[in-house]
Amino acid sequence: MKLNEPLAAVLRNGRADLNARFAAARRARPALDAEAFGAFLGAAVDPVACAVDRARPECVGAVVDVAYDIALDLVGQQLTAAGARSLMVNRLWEQTLPAAANLVAQSPAQLLTALNNAVLQLAATPGARPGQWLDLMQKGATCCDTPEVLLRFGQLAAWRSGLAHYRTSALSVSRDLPPATALAALGVPPSLNWPAVRERLGGDPWFDPSAKSPARGLRVAGRAGTFRGFGGLFPEPPVVALAQGRLLVQSGSDCWHLTADCFGATFHRAASADFERGRQEPQLPAVLRMKGSTVQRERESLDLHELGRFTSAACDGRTLALTSATTHVVVLVALV
């Protein structure tokens, strides 16, 4: 692959050092393939070098220096090998980073490392939407004026793209962002009142700021998890329990902590002992009742006959998690 001059010049000038770095990386990671590395330099690092050359030509050397080592890490760990994950990594380098060239030039090590790790985390999290995150970051590249702001923007956007477990922390970070930037990170119109949106988001996990008419009352708000045979987590239909205010899910001998909101649902490993302890605690508030396959709350009722009889139910106050013997999915009912 023919390289453009900005990258080619840096490689030419630092040939001996760069070759030594490749050799050292190969020793540490024998899977590092020279051909794949060359291809990645051409396809991914080259567009970034060209964009930086246009924005801040004096920074090309420093950016390529960092990008070269990161490329060694990525290719050496086979994170750029064929697959959905590599598509996202390539999109980051080909589109997002060139769009943020000016910011990358200001802090190459910090931004290149952070954004690569972020896209890899999103791509590795079942149910997360790395593509949506990259789209949001593309917009962020134009509306953020410093690398630090772009990183905070990325954190908020990651929550928006499905990493529900970051909800509380991301909302806290959003306080340091200008209102328009925070709204852009969540993909909602800039005309909305950010302090009001943030307050509502803080109190209601099922509040979707981009929805035209926000839903209310007892309703199925989401479904999380799937059968392991289809690439999911659960080897058998799961059961849920509430432990120390957290929703835990058990399937087979494994246990997870489930976090869910209107942006997504994620699972993190938890101890089975916590699940067993949780089952000893009351799982539902007095106002909620299960009758066959129906959920009742005072005068509200939600019929879920397609699930059959519930095998377990747990409620953290704002979300009711339900399972049944006929599905590997955890059904999430919004209570607010």
Binding site: V66, D73, L151, W159, T168, V173, A271
Partner: peptide, 22 residues
């Protein structure tokens, strides 16, 4: 095994397989 009381920090978004040289 993670404890049920685990808290999540969004700063972890930027931790991962790519080593931070900065």
């Amino acid at each position: 095994p993670a404890a049920a009381t685990r808290t999540f920090d969004v700063a972890d978004l930027y931790q991962g397989p790519v080593a931070d040289r900065s």
